[in-house]
Design a protein around this nucleic acid. Structure first.
Lengths: 209, 209
DNA sequence: GCATGACCATAAATCAAAATCAGTCATAAG
DNA sequence: CTTATGACTGATTTTGATTTATGGTCATGC
């Protein structure tokens, strides 16, 4: 069954546009979740922003949680697209890694939602935001792990446990991009990349040569 | 002014022992803080365990916080001792690092208190436990940073920013010893050391040789 | 036929009463 | 006399009863 979501907008009898109510709702909810987090976003507020009656939202989404999930999966999907776009298996592992990091750091809209959700996890511990962050984390970890396996096969990386190493790489990234900022001036993108290179690519020790 | 803390314990007129009330209080409080955390430890409880009146505690310590601080500084001091005992500047940096890690992981009593406090930070966010963990963290960071500077001078380590690198090493350690356990089976001490070696000493990349 | 907002049940915020606890001090013990 | 003590106090936290807010429904009207 296909549901109508488009309606003509008329003025003096003439069609001057169409309005996709579902899209309106999704956009309003996106902005609200990114701005206020999951808990502080109310369905009435979303309806107001979307210029729709509250009941209308429930013709598209069964619950608040489903609406949130749809938006979250959009974000995750967008992240996967970025990754796929940037990864080129003809190029070296570290090239791909840094290009993906760069691109991910660019995407404001994704970042705003994720930052707000991780703040909500710290401050109130909303289960839905907790769960959302877990999902995002596991998507990222799965990508890194896959790439590590590939690079290991290509003998670009040493033999290692991809699960543990991907976990460590992710934690390192989070440490540099967000935990460091709690007590220090934020690092530049260049500093972040340089330190990831130092640990992953070169190693810290001076080797006999 | 010197305060009495020792008293003779007599039986049928004969001295059969002495009791150091301050030591009793410190021991009781140590166990209680490690078992229940800062907030859930009450002064009355400490008095009960120590077999003293509540008022007696206040002849040695002005406040609950001061009592806690004294115990915390004992722990920190013990950690510094361990470090000093294990570090030998004639040996390589990574040797020292791993020996210190080993010894720190042994010390049950220290670990119990610190684990309880970090749980308290997550679960209730008691300011005193927050502050305590910050102090411990900065002691550890200061040690790592000092050792990194020394190793850099000895040309054992590459040129790097000691502040950022010590921060990353610490975060890596925490990731391996405690964050990993939230979703996986704990790693063995050997696995932990092996991965720290992989990242810090060797680097992950296969280098042309 | 579809959007809507008043409506309902439940979950969250509020607030006052009750309980707890850090810290004091008058008294007891030695 | 000196020191230990636990009943006491005021401030803070917990509790639970009441109010408010919110997710979700549905009868109405456009």
């Amino acid at each position: 069954m296909v549901m109508h979501t488009d309606y003509d907008v008329r003025w003096e009898g003439k069609i001057i546009g169409t309005v996709d109510r579902k899209k309106q709702v999704l956009e309003a909810a996106s902005r609200s979740f990114a701005l206020f987090g999951y808990k502080a976003t109310t369905m009435e507020q979303v309806a107001k922003i979307a210029n729709v009656g509250k009941g209308t939202i429930y013709t598209f989404f069964d619950t608040k949680e489903q609406l949130f999930d749809e938006i979250l999966h959009e974000v995750i999907s967008e992240m996967k697209n970025i990754i796929q776009r940037e990864v080129d298996h003809n190029k070296p592992f570290f090239d791909n890694l840094f290009r993906v990091l760069d691109s991910l750091l660019e995407f404001r809209s994704e970042h705003e939602l994720l930052m707000k959700l991780s703040q909500e996890v710290r401050d109130v511990g909303t289960p839905q935001s907790q769960e959302a962050m877990n999902q995002v984390e596991s998507v990222i970890l799965a990508y890194i792990e896959k790439e590590i396996r590939h690079a290991m096969m290509q003998k670009e990386l040493r033999d290692c446990d991809p699960g543990i190493v991907s976990f460590l790489m992710f934690k390192m990234y989070v440490a540099l991009t967000s935990e460091w900022n709690k007590n220090h001036e934020p690092l530049t993108k260049e500093q972040i990349k340089e330190h990831i290179r130092l640990f992953l690519e070169d190693g810290l020790a001076v080797h006999a040569s």
